[in-house]
Write a protein that binds this DNA or RNA. Structure first.
Lengths: 330, 330
DNA sequence: CCAGTGGATGTTTACGTAAACATTGCCTAG
DNA sequence: CTAGGCAATGTTTACGTAAACATCCACTGG
């Protein structure tokens, strides 16, 4: 910086002002400084900057090994949104979702050059962590709502599930079967709860739910069972991949979709439009979730806010060919 | 740090020594300092550290919007491996693969707290960038080999394709058709080249390749065409998703796999084991690619090495039910 | 018994930046 | 014509750490 100042014939403070876009610098001076910067290839030293400013302009993101497409898309949106606000994103990988690993990530976090943290994981692991987070603000995108203790941004799982069930009921189906996600997942649990509640509210009897583990393979196995249920005309699968397996099983068993059985998925993964038939599903707006995480965490940093809350991102029913009225043997 | 020093009754330098695990500190003193650190909740300031040490202990990763599973898995491996070496990972998202975006990422990079950069993208965008990278070492995982100008780590695309073709020839097929990836991709190009070369070396006539765009949908369309080729008994698809679409098309047309047609994919995505039938495919070791990227970049930093080279990560043929001898009407 | 040696610890300093305060010089109002 | 004000720029200082150097002290060997 001193070199630039000398070359431009100004003080280093003026260089600093130019570099940070402060007002009160003549246009002439600014140009000279910029020219000198270019000539010397000057790059501000971000370590010194951070030291002086007391902030890193960096957000940390803790997430499980980028396993699910949802997490990945959210992370991507976080990175993009953070960049727009002039923030970088540092990744804190947690290899396996064990308590030890989470604790390890949290303690590493203490030494990390990070102003705030966004946690993408189920909240019970956060709660059970023995290592506390350093006093940096945090937003949690969790498969749970804990708006009383953390600031939460999440997809409106319940609303999406409700829309899926209502869509099928509106088409004339008597009831809706559910291909649920694994027991440990709060997202799966909330989708299942909303499915159950919506049916009950509509005066229908919920059939026993079938459980999968999110994988297409588990959906296939569940599908073989559902294909044998004579009065099953509509299924709400807790995610698109299980719906894929379900479709294959139904096809194998000669149950036509949607003529014999209607299927709705959840997530709207890119492939779902190419399923056979194209899948009606609940679209999740991961980009919006990521954006809100970043804005939430930044506003908390500014206001030093302590009150928490939950922001739900609405879903959208994407209607494709896998759903229709019952018994429509067109 | 000064507070800790005072509480422990030592100088701040001793605190520094303890905090960095330097020798020459009595066990007694060390314990006292550690106790004081705990009591005060001391966390070393990484900005000051970086300023003093002249390095950030952070790697930057430039990649396209985490679109493909391969990139994601590689990124994950990079993050994990970096963490093991005491390095953090900062993400530089490039929203769309245009030259402008890449230039933007590079210039942002200049101000970023990063010691080195790992670039996960096709090398021609790197070459065409008008903004040059600051003098930090770089490893490029590209859909191309450019070991003369950059240090490259990549999957052995050619070897994998060769194995796929040979596997089919060994089973007794006269020749192997190819469902290729999009023209713009060097990975697709190299797989196609190796397919062609392997057939030619074996004295076979390569049929005209069919092109897809990596998507299952494009594989399906290509599959409808291939199903009508009477002498097509073996297909090598350039990725698993296109193979999925291909399988569906063949099934629709009543061509049995593997009895009538054998299919080999590339990538070994998790779902491929659950395809109908389970897909024989070429497994890519993304974790190894990521690990080698990190180690490569770190060793270059240490040695200040300037010579480049290409490290190829071997693939592995995963044999499943989608391949068999031709005309095996078992 | 003392010089010499080496391990443990303390003191000084600089890393690059930006906030706070100081200075300069020009313009305007009385 | 001059005091006052303000915009543009310069000077000083501190941010938290760790390298380099300085000091202290206990122990060893002659």
């Amino acid at each position: 910086m001193a070199d630039v100042a000398q070359l431009a014939g100004v003080s280093s403070q003026t260089v600093s002002r130019v570099s940070n876009g402060f007002p009160g610098v003549t246009e002439d001076t600014r140009r000279q400084v910029l020219a000198a910067m270019r000539e010397l290839g000057y790059r501000p030293n971000s370590a010194a900057r951070a030291l002086r400013r007391g902030e890193f302009r960096t957000l940390g993101v803790i997430t499980f090994s980028l396993s699910t497409m949802g997490n990945i898309r959210t992370l991507e949106a976080i990175a993009t949104s953070a960049a727009q606000h002039g923030y970088a994103v540092t990744l804190l990988p947690v290899a396996v979702p064990t308590q030890d690993e989470v604790n390890g990530a949290f303690s590493r976090l203490g030494e990390l050059a990070v102003d705030a943290v966004i946690v993408i994981m189920e909240i019970h692991l956060l709660d059970a962590a023995t290592v506390s987070l350093p006093p940096g603000v945090q937003v949690v995108v969790a498969d749970s709502d804990a708006g009383d203790r953390y600031t939460v941004v999440d997809t409106d799982q319940a609303g999406g599930a409700r829309d899926a069930v209502r869509h099928l009921l509106d088409l004339g189906h008597d009831t809706v079967w559910h291909l649920a996600g694994p027991e440990g997942s709060f997202a799966a649990q909330r989708r299942a709860n909303a499915w159950h509640a919506t049916l009950t509210e509509a005066g229908r009897t919920p059939p026993p739910p079938v459980r999968g583990d999110w994988s297409a393979e588990s959906g296939y196995r569940a599908g073989l069972r559902l294909a044998d249920e004579p009065d099953c005309t509509a299924v709400f699968a807790a995610n698109d991949q299980m719906a894929l397996g379900l479709l294959r099983a139904l096809h194998e068993r000669g149950r036509r979709v949607p003529d014999d059985i209607s299927v709705v998925g959840f997530d709207d993964i890119p492939e779902s439009a190419s399923f056979l038939p194209p899948l009606t599903t609940i679209h999740q707006d991961f980009a919006e979730v990521g954006r809100l995480c970043v804005e939430g965490v930044l506003s908390k940093m500014r206001q030093d806010g302590t009150e928490h809350g939950t922001t739900l991102v609405p879903t959208r029913l994407v209607r494709r060919a896998s759903t229709g009225a019952p018994g429509s043997s067109r």
